[in-house]
């Protein structure tokens, strides 16, 4: 049994209560959601919060609904709920793709989308997904709510724009016609973190050309989406040459490090290979939404 350093624990009864608890216990207090990122770090004593503020009773943060032209997902929504949602599979298959390859059922039953984003691990699959989909984060603090784009939310590895006494409440995704998406990951074993992964979203114009496209990369040193993909693909018909060009841009844009998962040249190669694959699949899917 791996034993964390001593800590205290409080169970929040509402979002405002959680914020008040964070305020009261100060900088050494931390929200705990699914605990699947925080607890392993505590057991290895890499994280040593003095207070855990448990938000697992906050059912008001556990929802998934289509609200006019938006999909809204509460921060406490579990991976499994995302994986099993038909709305998501239809509207944002990139999320379904990603959820298939995030961890294992045990982790997915507990881990949350809010925890994933707040953890901001460079290998976190949902961060890439949210970048690619241009998600908006709804954050609440003592002074009320604020809305953050993903580029505002993410501040780099393990860093977000959240203040110590703020809570991520919700993520919002704009629903757009003739749009689809895809995600693919290379891992050493099912349940392992990505060696590299890529996600893409493609919106087609009525004539079948690309109106808008975005590609994000996981675990290989790229913040946000790959620059120039949108301008390069806009107005073009989806084609292998176009995907290859996008792949080239992705492999140039990333900045991987060598580790046990692989050397730099391999990871750059994967940026290229996976970018082609996800753009191809997202384009095919977008074309199908058009037909259907």
């Amino acid at each position: 049994m791996q034993i964390p350093a001593p800590f205290d624990y409080a169970r929040a009864t509402g979002v405002d209560d959680a914020i008040a608890l964070l305020d009261r216990h100060g900088p050494e207090s931390r929200i705990i959601a699914g605990g699947h990122s925080l607890l392993p770090m505590m057991k290895l004593r890499l994280a040593r919060p003095e207070w855990l503020i448990d938000i697992n009773d906050l059912y008001e943060l556990d929802f998934l609904l289509v609200d006019k032209d938006k999909l809204r997902i509460g921060a406490l929504t579990r991976h499994t709920a995302l994986l099993e949602s038909d709305d998501i599979a239809r509207l944002f298959p990139i999320i379904t793709d990603a959820e298939h390859v995030i961890a294992d059922p045990v982790v997915r039953n507990r881990g949350t989308i809010g925890g994933s984003l707040c953890q901001a691990d460079p290998a976190e699959d949902l961060s890439t997904v949210c970048d690619v989909l241009g998600a908006v984060a709804v954050v609440r603090g003592p002074n009320g709510d604020r809305m953050l784009t993903m580029s505002e939310f993410h501040r780099g590895p393990y860093e977000t724009a959240l203040a110590q006494n703020e809570i991520l409440c919700e993520l919002q995704f704009a629903i757009r016609p003739r749009t689809s998406s895809a995600y693919e990951k290379v891992e050493r074993r099912v349940g392992d973190w990505a060696v590299a992964a890529a996600g893409a979203s493609v919106t087609l114009a009525a004539d079948g050309t690309i109106e808008e496209a975005a590609v994000g990369l996981t675990a290989i040193g790229l913040d946000g989406t790959v620059p120039d993909i949108d301008s390069t693909t806009r107005g073009q018909k989806p084609s292998e040459e176009l995907f290859a060009e996008a792949g080239r841009l992705a492999s140039l844009a990333c900045d991987p490090v060598a580790d046990q998962r692989g050397p730099i040249d391999y990871k750059r190669h994967l940026a290229d290979e996976l970018t082609r694959r996800v753009l191809r699949r997202a384009s095919e899917r977008a074309a199908q939404t058009q037909e259907g």
Partner: peptide
């Protein structure tokens, strides 16, 4: 035979 080693 990890993906990276196979690719190499």
């Amino acid at each position: 035979c990890t993906p990276a080693r196979v690719w190499a």
